[in-house]
Simulated assay, not measured.
Amino acid sequence: MSFLIAFLALSFLVFFHELGHFIAARIFGVRVEVFSIGFGVKIFSKKIGETQYALSMIPLGGYVKLKGQNDLDVLEQNCQNDSYSNKSPFVKIIILFAGPFFNFILAFFLFFMVGNMGVSTYLPIVGEVKKNMPAFEAGILENDEILSINAKQIKTWMDLQEAVAKDTMLNLVVLRKDKILDFTIRPEIIKAKNIFGEEIQKGVIGIAPSGKIGIVKYTGFESFEYASKKLYESSKIILLSVQKLISGIIPLKEVSGPVMIVDKLAQASKSDFVLLLLWVGLISVNLGILNLLPIPALDGGQILFNFYEILTRKPIYEKAKYYLTLFGWIILLSLMLLGLRNDILRLLGVW
């Protein structure tokens, strides 16, 4: 059952991405010939109006086939009014960008829902206070609850860590039993490792969490802030991961494919619905950003071609477009095969 939920979630993400392309195309009068969830042989199809809606055999993607656009033949042209190839580069960019944009909208909505439903997280309650560190010297005690730092409300231990990591003077408002106390603390700067294993400097005050977990809810404008922050942080991590992968800091064996994505979604569906929503939101952001990468086989590469036409006032040479797109497909298929290989090796316990 969990794997069925995972496949449905992944299919929904693809559907929403393609829905963005579909709606933008229809707004600008482009005929949509096929709207398919999945690739390969069509299991089910029904034509409504001018569009054939299909469910295809391989459920790891999807596509919309626009009149005058063919991913397998990038040189296909059609000069009729309802053709994609007859539209201006600016309109093409909007249609291409609409898919990833819908992924960002979906992710924001899911994060917004999570904020309202409540997130299970470590509470900002102090456990161990390390001797001879700033918090100890200021008088912070075990079981103190941090209410705010520099007038900003602290709801989670992560909020506390983010505030302390900055090299600034901190004004802490603390709840100790039934008393509200104020403390002024200067963080100590130490060397640490970030999520990519790189050495960084960050501020610490010498406290550890008590381990108490609670459900933190966000209401009203807080939900909007939470969703915006999650969308920004997710996008930033994914972009940095791509950069670190290209530069070689992240090894190729860390690249994941569709098998691992489905596995993660299945695990999340077993444990907690909120966790499942968070994972779907994160994958939606991932799908949006990866589709905007400047690889000719993806939306981002096609957007670059159209920007080139806007700047030079002439389309890219047909042969150049053909070979660049072919090269893009080679890169894309290589990454997919690499991800699939890594997934299989992980499942077999090799890594």
Rank of each mutant, 00 (worst) to 15 (best):
E76T: 14
Q77P: 03
Q80W: 08
N81W: 10
K87A: 05
P89H: 08
F90R: 15
F90A: 15
V91W: 02
I93G: 00
I95C: 02
A98I: 06
F101L: 12
N103K: 12
N103C: 13
F104W: 06
I105E: 09
I105M: 10
F108W: 13
M113K: 04
M117K: 15
G118Y: 09
T121G: 05
T121E: 11
Y122Q: 11
L123H: 14
L123W: 08
L123G: 09
I125P: 02
V129F: 05
K130D: 00
M133F: 14
P134E: 05
P134S: 09
E137Y: 10
I140Q: 03
I140H: 03
N143R: 14
D144F: 04
E145T: 11
L147N: 08
S148I: 06
S148V: 13
A151W: 09
Q153Y: 08
D159W: 01
Q161P: 01
Q161W: 01
A163G: 05
A165D: 04
K166H: 10
K166T: 13
N171G: 11
L172D: 00
L175K: 13
R176P: 03
F183W: 04
K191R: 04
A192W: 04
N194L: 11
F196K: 10
G197H: 06
G197Y: 06
G197F: 10
E198V: 02
I200A: 07
G203E: 01
G203K: 01
I205L: 07
I207C: 01
A208K: 14
P209E: 07
P209T: 13
G214R: 05
I215K: 15
